[in-house]
Computed example of a mutant assay.
Amino acid sequence: MSQNRAVPRRSVVAGAGALGVAATLAACSSYGDDGSDSATTTASTAAATSAAATASASAEATAGATPAGTELGPTSDVPVGGGKIFTAEKVVVTQPTAGTYQGFSAVCTHQGCTVSSVTGGEIVCNCHQSHFSATDGSVVSGPAKTALPSKTVTVSGDAIYLA
């Protein structure tokens, strides 16, 4: 899926920093009265040009880059107040409030079954009817006694990624 992605602030700051260093190097080159330091001036100018090109290429690469990890699917697959189980990746992603996505292991901590649904703000395992909070993975009702482990998920554009 092709989409425009904003350049992250980190890339802009890094690019501006690289340009600032290059400008400082160019400004700090010394000039002799007889012009004998023209090689230093040329080298500083080349360094400034190279740094600017590197910063620009870095910003362009980052702007089109996708987050590290496995793309799980579109955010539209995870309803507000509900969730979706990605069985192949053994992760469940919930959206307790609009725009807030949480990731948890989809493996029940009771006996290792894969959870089966997300309903009513709870992640449910049908094997033995353990229920977990869709907000933080804590046990709502057993027999499970341990919360579902958290998984790191990120959203970029309209896609969810598992880190």
Rank of each mutant, 00 (worst) to 15 (best):
M1T: 12
M1Y: 09
N4C: 03
A6Q: 13
V12Q: 13
V12W: 10
G15Y: 07
A18C: 11
A22S: 14
A23N: 14
T24E: 10
C28K: 11
Y31I: 10
Y31K: 14
Y31S: 15
A39W: 09
A39N: 12
T40L: 15
T40P: 01
T42W: 06
T42D: 14
A47N: 07
A48S: 14
A48C: 11
S50I: 06
A52L: 13
A52F: 11
A53V: 11
G64I: 11
A65Q: 12
T66Y: 08
A68I: 01
A68V: 09
G69D: 06
G69R: 09
T70K: 12
E71D: 02
G73P: 03
S76L: 02
S76K: 12
P79Y: 04
V80Y: 07
G81Q: 02
G81A: 10
G83W: 01
I85A: 02
A88T: 11
Q95P: 01
T97Q: 12
A98K: 09
Q102P: 03
Q102I: 00
A106F: 05
V107L: 06
V107S: 07
C108W: 08
C108T: 04
T109F: 04
H110S: 07
C113R: 03
V118H: 05
T119Q: 14
T119I: 02
G121F: 02
C125N: 05
H131V: 04
F132H: 08
F132Y: 15
S133Q: 03
A134C: 03
T135S: 12
D136Y: 03
D136V: 06
V139M: 09
G142Q: 08
G142A: 10
G142T: 12
P143K: 04
T146R: 06
T146C: 05
T146K: 13
L148T: 05
P149Q: 06
S150W: 00
K151S: 10
K151Q: 13
T154R: 08
V155Y: 03
D158K: 06
D158N: 10
D158E: 13
A163Q: 07
A163D: 04
